[in-house]
Computed example of a mutant assay.
Amino acid sequence: MTSLVRIYDLATDATETVFETDRLIEAPNWTPDGTALIVNGDGLLFRLPLDAPRLDRIDTGDLSQLNNDHGLSPDGTRLAISDKTRNGMSEIYTLSVSGGSPEALGAPLPAYWHGWSPDGAALAYAGRRDGIFQICTMPASGGDETIVTGGFDHCDGPDYTPDGRWIWFNGEKDGSVDLWRIPVSGGAPERMTDDERVNWFPHPSPDGAHVLYVAFEAGTEGHPRDRDVELRLIPAEGGAPRTLLSLFGGQGTINVPCWSPDARRFAFVSYARP
């Protein structure tokens, strides 16, 4: 296993590899100050400074079975993580960005974090409810869960738009996996892609112009790793997608928000072929 942490520049279409390792690394977030990435690997969480790339472990207390669903609060002071150490199923916790004792959100299990509202007040996540994965929200301080989707066979990957008006997600319906968005204030979801690809993990850019996502080959079930995939960009209000690059990846490539604060670049992970 060789993991390549890479950065794509929208202005130049250039890709830079900033870190390479023989361990499994997944799901880069970009810190709000632009100086580092947050990644996970082997059930642990790391800070990867961009000026001198290395894996600096972040203390997550007794939690050591993190999956790749983690991310930073808008002000950069808190981390949301998803881990199954305590209960055997994925649970959402928050903790200081510098590490420390994680605090459970209190969402029903299982729950997989994916998005933080721009004002920092709410979290969006995927949770299996009555046998189907739905998109849910909850105040970041804990409280009542709101299930915001219905009528899908499977939902995942929710992420907020920077104006806080929409939640984008991938939804499976009638055998097709497309990108959708739903108003945060309530209302019907809108289908944003309609093609033969299996489209996952939409991430609106911080400037509100684009949405980045990973497109699996037609017929792919779920979001497996070690597949030939494409990273695509779609206008925020919908339209024809543009393929930015093809790579060997999938699961772990862009599971979580990965844009640079200035919306000019994004981070992703690709893997060497066996």
Rank of each mutant, 00 (worst) to 15 (best):
T85Q: 05
R23L: 13
R129D: 11
C258W: 06
E26S: 08
R47W: 10
L231D: 05
P74H: 05
T193E: 08
W168N: 12
L37T: 13
S73L: 04
G250T: 03
W166K: 04
S270M: 01
A52L: 05
S270V: 03
M1H: 10
R165H: 10
G151Y: 00
R86A: 15
G150E: 06
V214W: 08
E26C: 04
E217R: 12
G208P: 03
T12Y: 04
Y271P: 06
V269D: 10
G131C: 10
T137E: 15
R232A: 02
D163F: 10
V198K: 05
S260H: 03
R232V: 12
M138N: 13
P139N: 02
R264S: 03
V18E: 04
M89E: 14
G120L: 04
H154C: 02
G252Q: 06
S82C: 15
L24D: 15
D195T: 02
T21R: 06
L24N: 13
A267F: 10
S176W: 14
P49W: 11
Y213I: 06
S246D: 14
P108H: 13
F216H: 09
E91W: 12
K173H: 09
T12K: 03
L24V: 14
P110I: 05
A122Q: 09
P28W: 12
L105G: 00
A236D: 04
T77S: 12
T85D: 07
H223Y: 15
D194W: 06
A215H: 11
G88N: 11
